[in-house]
Design a protein around this nucleic acid. Structure first.
Length: 231
DNA sequence: CCAGACGTTGTT
DNA sequence: GTCTGG
DNA sequence: CCAGACGTTGTT
DNA sequence: GTCTGG
């Protein structure tokens, strides 16, 4: 986790849920199968004005010191345990914490060496939520090209993803924030006092998981059925 | 010292 | 940019 | 998963 | 066709 998620809400719903202004020209298409390396909406704080803004960024963080903006699947997630020490994330976690709007995500349960069963996971009440994320700004020194990228933080699994008894879906899960914590997650903070205490497994009783078909794994598939099956 | 890494999860 | 390993 | 590679020899 | 890297 988390290598695939979905966002079926339109920009009006996103604007309301995250109390953010969205320019009229800003288009977001609902997607039931969001893959790494694609452009996705991200909520961040403009430190100059103090206002929240919604911007499109590429999923897969490129560190500012990288020589080239080479696609890397290894930075689509950042482990909460290593946020402050890893070279790729330790600067971003100080100054560039963000929210990634989502309606659900997928987990592939390992049934055998070559068998998996994908599940969709979402909030019980169907409401939109936010992954805790980091973003980074990469500049090409020669072409002046700018590229903004983001990563989704992962944490320990909760009782739904990794039950004491019953089938285990996975050993990690994305960090999900309660709306009450959005402000504190994004607000400027003393680097010695980062709000990493918010990155705990989300309340399992408020979530549900259900089987979906293997078509979820194919990025060319993008229909509501992907996350609704067997609900 | 200099070169090389710097990261994580997924997959029938 | 900065740390680590050789 | 999907996209892309898949190989060897010679040579100042 | 089948393996590898992303």
């Amino acid at each position: 986790m988390c290598g695939r998620y979905y966002l079926r809400s339109d920009k009006q719903r996103i604007a309301e849920a995250f109390r953010v202004e969205i320019p009229p020209t800003f288009d977001i298409l609902p997607s039931y199968n969001i893959a790494p390396q694609t452009m996705q909406p991200v909520v961040r704080l403009d430190h100059e004005t103090g206002h929240r803004e919604l911007v499109l960024m590429r999923w897969g963080l490129i560190p500012f010191w990288a020589k080239e903006a080479k696609i890397s699947y290894s930075t689509i997630n950042a482990r909460v345990e290593t946020l402050t020490t890893s070279a790729a994330f330790r600067e971003a976690v100080k100054y560039r914490r963000c929210l990634i709007p989502a309606d659900g995500f997928y987990e592939w349960q390992h049934l055998g060496p070559k068998t998996t069963q994908p599940y969709a996971v979402a909030l019980r009440d169907g409401s939109m939520f936010a992954f805790a994320g980091l973003w980074e700004n990469w500049n090409d020194t020669t072409t002046r090209e700018r590229l903004e990228t983001f990563t989704i933080i992962t944490t320990e699994p909760n009782e739904l993803i990794h039950p004491l008894r019953g089938p285990i879906l996975h050993d990690r899960m994305p960090a999900i924030l309660a709306p009450a914590d959005y402000e504190r997650w994004m607000a400027p903070a003393d680097p010695a006092r980062l709000p990493t205490d918010l990155l705990r497994p989300f309340d399992a009783t408020r979530m549900s998981a259900w089987k979906v078909s293997a078509a979820v794994g194919n990025v060319r598939n993008d229909s509501p059925e992907l996350c609704r099956e067997a609900l």
